[in-house]
Design a binder for these strands. Structure first.
Lengths: 222, 222
DNA sequence: TTGTCGGCCGATCGCCGACAA
DNA sequence: TTGTCGGCGATCGGCCGACAA
C-alpha cells in the first residue's frame, strides 16, 4: 500500500520513521498475539529494548481491509556505533492527498442503496459537475487499500439538490460488509488525480458470512 | 455424524471396525499432511506398524461438508497379549438407509433453480404424492452431514410429468457452492423416516468466495 | 424418461423527489 | 444541509409447460 494513502486512511497515527530509535516492549507485543511467541530468556530479562527502525512496510489485510504496518527493528547495544542516528530519510515527493471521512448513516448502509456525499466532501474530493444542468452525473473509479477498483455513479439531484453516490455503492457496502457507524475515507491524490477509498470499522469482523438455517416453508393450495 | 449416514454418503469406502488389527504406514500418513509431523526415530525404523483399532469417529467439515474419519490406533508389540483380537463389535441396530445419488446437470446447478428428480429416486426415497392430482406438492426436510436442515418443495408436474425439487433448491446449491458435475446423495432412514442429503464434489474447494473486480460502468444521457 | 429452453409472473433492488430535522 | 421515507420502474429469480434427445 502507498504510504501516503495508508496514513491518510488510518487518520490519527504515530508511526516512527526509518532511522529513528525506539523502545521495543516484548511483553506488550506478546499480549497481542494469538500464539505465545518463544523469546530467549535474555529478552525477558529486560522490559524495554532500545532499537533502531531499519524498515517499515505499510500493509492491508486483503479480506477485511484491516490496515497494519510491519516494522523492522534492530537492537542497539549500549556503546554501539550505530547509536549515531540519522534523521528520517523518507523521500519527500511533493504530492498532496486530500482526505474526507464520514460515518455511515443507516440510509448510507444499504437502505435505498445510495450514499449522501456531504457538500464539503464533494467540493474537496470529487471532480466538478455542472451544477446548472438538470441532473449532472459522472462515473468515478476509486481504489481501495488492497488495490481493487470500485466504480461509483456520482449524481447531483433532488430537491433541495445534493451530491449522491448511487450505482455501485450498494455492491461496495455489501462486499466490505459495512454497517451503520462504520466510516469511509474518500481520498484524492491531487498530483495524479487518482481516487482512493478506505474504511474504518466500528468493530472488527470476527466471523465471515456464516450461512443461516432455513425456516419451514408455507403451504400452497393446488 | 451418524455412522450409517456417513458411510452411505461416502459410498465406496473401506474403514476398519473397532477391534480389528491393521498396519499403520507412517510415511504414507506424513505425505498427506501440510506440516511435517515429528516422529521419533523408532518410528522411522519400521515402515509398517501393527496396530489395533480402538476407536473411530465419523466427522464432517462444517464449511465444506468434506467427510473424514478419525481412527484411534494402539500399537501391538510382537508378543503382546492384546494380539487376541475380538471380532468387530459394532452395534447392529436394525435400521436401513435407502440411498440414491445423482450427478448434477447444468440445469440442476442453478439454471432455472430446480432439480430434476429421477423417477427411481423419487420412488425409492421420497414420500408418495398423489400422482392423479393436477400438480401434487409437498415440502420435505433434509439434514446435511453437519446437521443443518434444508427444506425443499417437491412437485410432480410438467408434460410429460416428472418429479422436481423447486423452492429451497437454489438456496442449497448456492450455500454449498455446487457446480455441474458435483453429485448429491439423497438418503432416507426407513425406520425413523428421517431424510438426509450429502454432497460429493467433482473437485475440492480451495478458495472460499473471493470477491471479483468490478468492470467499468456505461454512460447515461441526462 | 429427463435435460434445456423461452415465457411470464412476482419479488426485490435501487433510483427518485418530497419533506423535515 | 442532509437523513429518511414512500413511490415506482427496471431487473432478476425462479416456477411453469413445451419440446426434443
Amino acid at each position: 500500500v502507498d504510504s501516503k494513502v495508508w496514513k491518510a486512511c488510518v487518520g490519527s497515527f504515530s508511526i516512527p520513521s526509518v532511522g529513528e530509535s525506539v523502545y521495543y516492549f516484548p511483553e506488550g507485543h506478546a499480549e497481542q498475539l494469538r500464539s505465545i511467541p518463544v523469546f530467549s530468556p535474555a529478552v525477558y530479562d529486560k522490559p524495554l529494548i532500545l532499537c533502531r527502525v531499519t524498515g517499515i512496510r505499510f500493509l492491508a489485510n486483503s479480506v477485511t481491509d484491516e490496515l497494519f504496518a510491519s516494522i523492522r527493528l534492530v537492537p542497539i547495544s549500549g556503546s554501539d556505533e550505530s547509536l549515531k542516528i540519522e534523521g528520517a530519510i523518507e523521500n519527500k515527493v511533493e504530492e498532496r492527498i486530500e482526505t474526507f471521512s464520514k460515518k455511515l448513516t443507516t440510509s448510507d448502509a444499504n437502505n435505498g442503496g445510495g450514499f449522501s456525499v456531504p457538500k464539503l466532501c464533494a467540493q474537496l474530493i470529487l471532480p466538478e459537475l455542472n451544477l446548472h444542468e438538470r441532473n449532472p452525473v459522472q462515473f468515478l473509479r476509486f481504489k481501495d487499500v488492497v488495490g481493487r477498483e470500485w466504480v461509483f455513479r456520482h449524481v447531483y439531484r433532488g430537491s433541495p439538490p445534493r451530491h449522491l453516490l448511487t450505482t455501485g455503492w450498494s455492491i461496495f457496502v455489501d462486499a466490505k460488509k459495512l454497517v451503520p457507524g462504520d466510516s469511509i475515507v474518500l481520498m484524492k491524490n491531487t498530483s495524479t488525480d487518482q481516487y482512493y477509498v478506505g474504511i474504518r470499522r466500528v468493530r472488527e469482523i470476527h466471523s465471515l458470512d456464516q450461512a443461516e438455517n432455513q425456516e419451514g416453508g408455507n403451504d400452497e393450495g393446488v
